[in-house]
């Protein structure tokens, strides 16, 4: 029983990481029908920006004197990472995606461009900062709460809480605000959006800001939970989050979260009963089965062709 609850908590934590990344895929796909394959690397960049922000604020670079308390460093590191990562995401959109959109390029070229952007980010990081891994500093001491036989850290609680709050926030923004409606409108009929007096590019930039800043949030939390960073850390987790978004039903925020948590659960539960080398094999076989039964994903709706 205790180990089951322990596993559920771990699954929720991993599900939170996947969900936070998946929703970036989901938002950009929802608005532009573009699979932004660079998004996993945006997550990696978020973790790195957090690393540089935190080491700078802790006084390790010698620019400012050390002595700032850990919680204050964390409180500043999160917005710093979110802002810089958003800037990176928006830069990709401006430099790589927008020119193609302007020329009416076929989706295939845009997707390939996204893949290449991801590779450029990974290898740009490798070239700039070398292959050595970075150790993310401890900002807040870990507190372990034990209830019965179950132990849970303050960090794990924070990760899950952040994911849930992010979901509620985005659900509100996309569903209830004017800019959220504009995002939905672009996904349905991009032609008519400027006719409403809406600057389409501004809404698209906003979409990238949202997706990138939540990837940054995931990056900070991930770096705190698993404090070893390397340039390729975003690749596999990005792929997995993308698969989670598709299984959940890409284009729907609920779907991104459901898919993220589903993947977290499946992975952790497989490891609970099988050797850990079986994890991805069994996990993805299960997801494959779900997709073959429901090809639009759990919360996806088949897009009816317009007449």
């Amino acid at each position: 029983m205790e180990s089951l609850i322990q596993n559920i908590l771990n699954a929720l934590q991993w599900g939170s990481f996947y969900s936070l990344i998946a929703l970036g895929y989901c938002l950009v796909y929802g608005v532009l029908s573009l699979i932004n394959f660079a998004h996993g690397d945006i997550f990696m960049a978020g973790a790195y920006f957090a690393f540089f922000g935190a080491t700078f604020l802790l006084g390790k670079t010698g620019v400012i004197p050390p002595g700032m308390p850990g919680w204050a460093v964390l409180a500043l590191t999160i917005p710093i990472s979110m802002i810089l990562t958003s800037a990176l995401g928006v830069t990709l959109e401006r430099v790589a995606y927008r020119p193609l959109r302007r020329k009416g390029a076929h989706k295939l070229y845009v997707v390939i461009t996204a893949l290449m952007c991801g590779l450029v980010l990974e290898n740009g990081n490798l070239a700039l900062f070398g292959a050595s891994r970075k150790n993310f500093p401890t900002l807040v001491p870990q507190i372990v709460y034990s209830l019965g036989g179950v132990s849970v850290t303050n960090l794990k609680v924070a990760v899950i809480l952040v994911a849930v709050l992010s979901f509620l926030f985005l659900h509100y923004v996309v569903g209830k605000t004017k800019i959220g409606m504009a995002m939905q409108a672009i996904s349905y009929d991009r032609f008519a959006v400027p006719l409403m007096g809406i600057p389409t590019d501004t809404v698209i930039v906003f979409t990238f800001v949202l997706g990138s800043s939540f990837a940054a949030l995931a990056g900070v939390l991930f770096a705190m939970s698993y404090p070893v960073l390397d340039p390729f850390m975003g690749a596999l987790i990005g792929w997995k989050a993308f698969i989670a978004a598709v299984v959940g039903g890409i284009g729907s925020i609920r779907g991104a979260f459901a898919g993220g948590f589903l993947l977290g659960f499946v992975e952790i539960m497989v490891v609970a009963f099988f050797p850990s080398t079986f994890r991805d094999l069994i996990a993805f076989s299960i997801l494959l089965l779900i997709l073959s039964l429901k090809p639009t994903g759990l919360f996806g709706v088949a897009r009816r062709t317009k007449i």
Binding site: M181, Q184, Y188, A192, M196
Partner: peptide, 17 residues
């Protein structure tokens, strides 16, 4: 070119963006 995925009210609201 109405936004079929939005309600009538949301379509009208969007035009006041």
């Amino acid at each position: 070119h109405i936004f079929g995925n939005l309600t009538v009210m949301e379509n009208l609201t969007l035009a006041t963006y």
